[in-house]
Structure formats: C-alpha cells, structure tokens
Computed example of a mutant assay.
Amino acid sequence: MNGIDLVNGIVGAVCGIILAILFQQPLQDGWFRARRRFATVVRSLTYREGGAPLSTWSTFSIGPLHTSALVVEGDGEQAIAPESVRVQVLEGEVVLPEEMAAWRAEVEAAEEQAETSGTRVRVWNGPRYAVEGLEISRTALEEHADVRLRLRPTDYFTFLAAQQLDRRFADGTTPRGRYLDPDRPLDAPAFLQCSFGVNVAVVTADHLLVVSRRADNVRSGPGLWGSSVNEGLSRHIDSAGRSAPDLHDVARRGMREELSLEPQEYTLTLLAFVLDIERRQWSAHFTAHLTDLTGQALRSRISRGVADRWEHQSIEYVPFRPVDVTRYVLRPDRIRRWAPVTPALFHLALVHTHGRGAVERAEAQTVRRLRAEGTRLPTDPPVSGAAPEPR
C-alpha cells in the first residue's frame, strides 16, 4: 500500500503541474479581463461627458482641514538651496485698472481722514513688491529646483485696493471673475499679487514648535494663529541700493525682529513656495532649528524685549512630533483660526525632519483617532484670512 500511495502521489503531483502550466495563464488572463470590464463599468457609471477634469493644482488639506494654500514648489524633503533662487526686480510700478485705481484713492482718503480725526493711527503706505511671475525649472543633472521670481514695485495702498477681489465693478463683475481663471491659478496680473512674504517654522533645541497668534489690531489676519515668524518684503528695508531682495535675508530679519534671534543661533532652510489662491498672496516657507536655545530660554529671551512685539498677542509651544502637531492643528477651537498658509508650513517642516512617510501616516492615524474619540471635526470651506503681512 505504501508503494501504491507513493506512486499515486507522484502521479497526482505531475498532473497538478501539467494542469497549472496549461491553465494558470488563461485563468490569470480571464481574471484580468474581468477586473478590467468591472473598472470600465464603474467609470461609465460615474463619468459624465463634459465633466471637469481633475486638476493637479489642489490646495493643501489634512483630513477635514481644507486651506487655500497651494504648494507651488517644494515637498519638504528636499531643501531649496539659496543659490537656486534668482530674484529679479523689473522696471516700472504696478498700474491698477482705472476702476480699481479709484478704490486705491478711497483707501488713501480713509487713511488721511483717520489721521485728521484721531480715531486710529494712520497706516503707513510703505513701498513693497508685487509678483510679476514665478517660474520653476530643474537643473540638468541633479534635477534640483531652479526658481526665478520676478517682482515689480508697488505700495501698500495698492495692495489694500487689490485685496478687494470680490468687490463689484459697475458692470457687475469682480476682479476675481474678470482677471482670474480658477483652472490656471498661477496666471494672474501683477496688480492682483501685491504681496510676497516669508513664513518660518521655528523649532527649539528641545524640539518644540513655536506657534504665534497675530494681534487683533493688525490689518492683515487679525487674531489668526500662524507661523513662528512671518515677514513681508519691503522695498525700503530689503533692497539695499538697487539690489534685489534676498529671501533668506528677509527671513533672518523676521527672526531678529519678532523673536530676537541672530543668524548664528539657528540653521535656516528654504522648503517651498506657496500661493494663497483666495487672497493671491505669495509666501516662501522656511524652517529654522535653534542650535542651543530651548523653549524656556527662548521665552526668557522674548521677555527681555523684541522689536515687533506688538504684531503678536501670544505664543505657544508644541512638541515637534507629527502626531502632536497634527492634533494641535486639528483642535476644534483652532481649526478655523489658522492663517491659510500655516498648516502647510508646519506639515513641510515636519516632513523635512521626520520624513514624508512617517508624517503622512501620523496625520492619517490622528484623523482616524479623533473621529473614533468622537471629536467633532468641521468640514468647512477652505480656511480664509490673510497670509503673512508685515503690518
């Protein structure tokens, strides 16, 4: 019996191999065709002729948090080298269309009236820059980012007039509807982009993220929670003589004015270029890691005085770990109170330190846990508000 069983086993094994050889590929082909037909049926049920194609230009979001921040260049993992950014200042100031020029005259008259009546401090019409264009290319060998930023002179009153994107003209249209195409977010006239600033995510030596809240009396984003440091480009301060501004120098100025930090006390890294498509405000996103100063030491430093203390009404410190920062960003009392570009800044800073995979896993896990805990996560439209402005 043992011999017969052995022979039967060998015969069965040989037959199994033959059948597998003969039928495995046809079975696989049949299964593939069935899956393809199923996918085609699903697409036919969901597709509508003339439907809008999915855009690659999606604004930044985490779970229920949707912002108007569009990450134009940078993924957080690879830094953008200072020498990779070329800034060019073009001749000739921004010119507003005739109807919008009247709005600028209204802004100027209102500020003069405020000074005359003494109801509030008059806003200074500081010289600033508008964005004519931002072009991105890649180096031939390493494929590193090569950024060309073209700026044009403008002023703060022009910026305030251009921020009225949804104000109606005499014909009923608005600047947003007349001059902007939502499917081409990078195409916009310079007079609607009179803002370029830097945002810095500062991390202390003991791994705490510095988060600031803007003062209630500032004109741009009052009361919103934002980056550790934000600073707008100034023609008066950031362009010595006729030279173009250096974005790293602007970030260093913000670090000094808002946190009393000197360049030798931190490492500064450029991570991304981001556009707030709702307000048409551009930002360069940086992260800065303090070499020796802990959170307590920074608090002590700030207590002894900073140049621009009045711009922020409070500062908080959050453990710089993906789960902790994500839970903080998604707090029910905070999720609607972020400056639009700030969540993207914190995400990119985390990615630069912890890696994209770890950060995205932590974000997904945090969203699931918050929902499992019964935390009510709003599903509001994109966060609105103003991006970084110096005043």
Rank of each mutant, 00 (worst) to 15 (best):
R184T: 10
A145T: 03
V94Y: 00
C15Q: 14
G30Y: 09
T173R: 10
P26H: 10
T366K: 04
L27V: 12
H248E: 12
F159W: 10
T158D: 07
G76A: 03
T119V: 08
A20N: 08
A105C: 13
G221S: 00
T154V: 01
A34V: 05
V123A: 12
N230W: 08
T366H: 05
H352W: 04
D380E: 09
A215C: 14
G9H: 08
L224S: 08
P127R: 10
E115V: 04
W31V: 12
A52F: 08
D308M: 06
L259D: 01
E316I: 03
E98Y: 02
P343F: 01
Y317F: 12
T267S: 09
Q113F: 09
L247Q: 04
L65Y: 00
M255F: 05
A339N: 07
V131F: 01
Q24S: 14
E142T: 05
N217V: 05
L186E: 07
A52Y: 14
E265C: 15
G51Q: 11
Q281I: 01
V11L: 11
G374F: 08
N8W: 07
T59Y: 02
V71P: 05
L27G: 15
R120Q: 07
Q24H: 12
D29E: 13
E132R: 08
I277G: 01
D292S: 15
V383W: 00
A364K: 02
P127L: 11
A13E: 12
